[in-house]
Amino acid sequence: MSVYLLRRLLQAVAVVFAMSLIVFVGVYAIGDPVEILISPDADQLERERAIAALGLDLPLWEQYFVFLARAMQGDLGRSFVFNEPALRLILQRMPATLELAFGATIMALIIGLPLGLYAGLRPHSPLSRAIMAGSILGFSLPTFWVGLMLIMVFAVQLGWLPSTGRGPTRELLGLQWSFLTWEGMRHMLMPAINLSLFKISLVIRLTRAGVRETILQDYVKFARAKGLRPARVVGVHVFKNILIPVVTVVGLELGSTIAFSVVTESVFAWPGMGKLIIDSINVLDRPVIVAYLMIIVLMFITINLVVDLTYSVLDPRVRLEAKGT
């Protein structure tokens, strides 16, 4: 097991290194921040001084090595715009994005699992057909449009829910969280639904497919032949087996949810990392963009690892193989 972990960690380091290079070169290619940052009527001397201060006078490879050397010490550069460490800027906004993403994931499981179970157990009932049709909508409607519709209906027409911001927050572990206050929860509800729509559909489809496949297995028939109650057959024998693919996919999806919460955050003015990165791209704030992308890469790697480990807890067959290597 520890050999396995070590190998995974080495892989992770290699991926981070490769990504840093790609990201750095990629961001460099997007455009020259000088045009945006320095006022057009600055004279030549002022321009050169500013460029040198930002470290933009060095050749690309040297800029990269400076970045790399500092990154090793946990310094991902200072924002051109805010003149603050990019890392701190992002970390400040991370709790908002994280709680939104987790809220959306939990909602996807709470709504998706029962609906998928029902649709799998009663595939021909009208309700199941309605659920499946709904899941197609969840896949195909664009997030920003659904977000605007939610605001139209629940904020503008009915006035039930607030449409922008996080609402009041409360501190936990030194960070500010919305879900700890009632108002904060109300603020989070619509963005979380908006972000979870795709995932609800995904969970429904995965669960349904898993149930359809699992109930045909001999071990389910054997469980029934043992005289177990239907609730136990479905709740334990079927459910534990479908949990394996669902946890895998939803876990892996968590990364993309965080990365792509950009749209939802923009629609609901949710002050998370997604909103920050959109603003930073607009002004070509390179250090923030690079730092953001590096953090996303790290997050994907961590999530993949955690999913793999969870998977081996859920599926005893995987555990054995891991031990064997």
């Binding site: 028939k221 054997f222 469980a223 032949a225 043992k226 005289g227 087996n241 599926d315």
Partner: peptide, 25 residues
Amino acid sequence: MRDLRGNRIAMIFQDPMMTLNPVLR
């Protein structure tokens, strides 16, 4: 029927590799 199954009437299946649930002890 459920009360009889596995209690007064038991069944053993053909393929032993498939009759036990792989994720339960």
